[in-house]
Amino acid sequence: MGEINIRMSRSQDPHPPRSFFPFGNPFRMKSPKGSCLSPQLLAVLQAFEATLGERLKKLMPKSRDEILCFSWMTLAVKSLCETHNDILTLITDLELPVGEWDDKWIDVYLDVSGKLLDICNAFSSELSRLSQGNLPLKCALHNLESASSKQYIRACSLLDEWKQLVNSRNPRIEKCSSILDNLVGSLDLPKVKNSAKGKVLMQALYGVKVETVFVCSVFTAAFSGSSKKLLELNVADIHLWAPAFKSLQNVVNEEIRVRFSRGKFTVLNELEAVDTFVKELYPAIRGGVETTEMELPVKKTVEELGAAAEKLSQGIDLLVKGVDGFFQAVLTSRHALLTPVRFDKPVNDRPGRNVTQQVA
């Protein structure tokens, strides 16, 4: 009971990836064996899961056009921040100090949170790369303010530079897929010790993991330009948040696959809008024909390109702040959870087990 099957759209490695939380199957708490949950613990868990369910519902786009616009992506990463912060609150409510955790829990927490920080860095790298593309785009628009043939030729060159940049691939994003594979390992491992509080924590952490892997999978697919990077997570119905998650995953993943099947080079709405106007404008100014005044249709396209470029720039800036916020949330949780360990337990007694250095 409670077994979770996770299937992915890409092939598995010959060796199964390390589990996200190898503390046992959190759904064994529903089994008659082991500790029973008190009404108080059950209320804590249900409150956490209900909040997560409502949070996932808020990510459901009102229309497919909202999927993978930068505002939706910013909302998604903000949701992750809130969910990760909720875990700290949950641990406080459970009165389950980290000092009482098994050493392997600490080891795995360091490993997992470290991988999330790597993913954040990769996303920040990609957003920085896209932001750099704004410079040739803005310069091209500036050159198009003139009716000079030479300026038109220069604008074409700058638009070529922009197209080459946005069509290139970031190797750091490509590595995110293998990181995600390591975060979706099987949960069907030895159960946790006979601790009702531990089982509540594990089930809550599973919800955090599912939302995190889903959002990071969507971002990775969007930034990599391939639907093969998408993950499909099958979640047991015993969770209060399961229906909201399944609906969200189905809608978002399906739309991403449809867009890529149409041959689009990107599924990012604002980036696609800029690319559309660039493709429309480029033939009209290529060759640098001398004119005394820009023709009205071309002038309109230039104005639309300028508006689209500004919207793209603003969207990137918002998402940069969102990803940075998620990075800080993960870093804060590492520090908050591991600081008591540094003082309560000798954690540096084995090679590679320096928590102080890892937190830094």
Rank of each mutant, 00 (worst) to 15 (best):
I6M: 06
S9R: 14
H15I: 11
P16Y: 13
P16C: 04
P17F: 04
F20T: 01
G24M: 04
F27V: 08
K30T: 05
S31T: 05
C36F: 04
E49T: 06
E49C: 12
L52H: 13
R55L: 13
R55K: 15
K58L: 06
E66T: 01
C69H: 01
C69W: 00
F70W: 06
F70Y: 14
S71V: 11
V77L: 11
S79P: 13
S79L: 10
S79G: 14
L80H: 10
E82W: 02
N85T: 04
D86C: 06
L96P: 01
G99V: 06
D107H: 06
D111W: 12
K115N: 09
L117T: 11
S124R: 15
P136I: 15
L144P: 12
A147D: 15
K150E: 10
Q151K: 03
C156N: 00
E161C: 14
E161S: 15
W162M: 08
W162F: 15
Q164I: 13
N167A: 14
L180I: 14
N182K: 09
S186G: 10
K191S: 13
A196H: 04
L205M: 13
V210W: 07
V215T: 14
T220E: 09
T220W: 04
K228N: 08
K228I: 04
K229T: 10
K229H: 10
V235A: 07
D237F: 03
W241T: 05
W241P: 02
A242C: 11
A244N: 03
E272C: 06
T276I: 10
F277Q: 05
K279N: 10
P283L: 07
P283N: 12
A284Q: 09
G287E: 01
V289E: 09
L296G: 11
K299S: 15
E303W: 02
G306I: 03
G306E: 02
G315L: 12
I316N: 02
L318G: 01
G325L: 07
A329L: 08
A329Q: 14
V330M: 07
L331S: 08
T339W: 01
V341D: 00
V341E: 02
F343Q: 09
N354G: 09
V355L: 04
A360D: 11
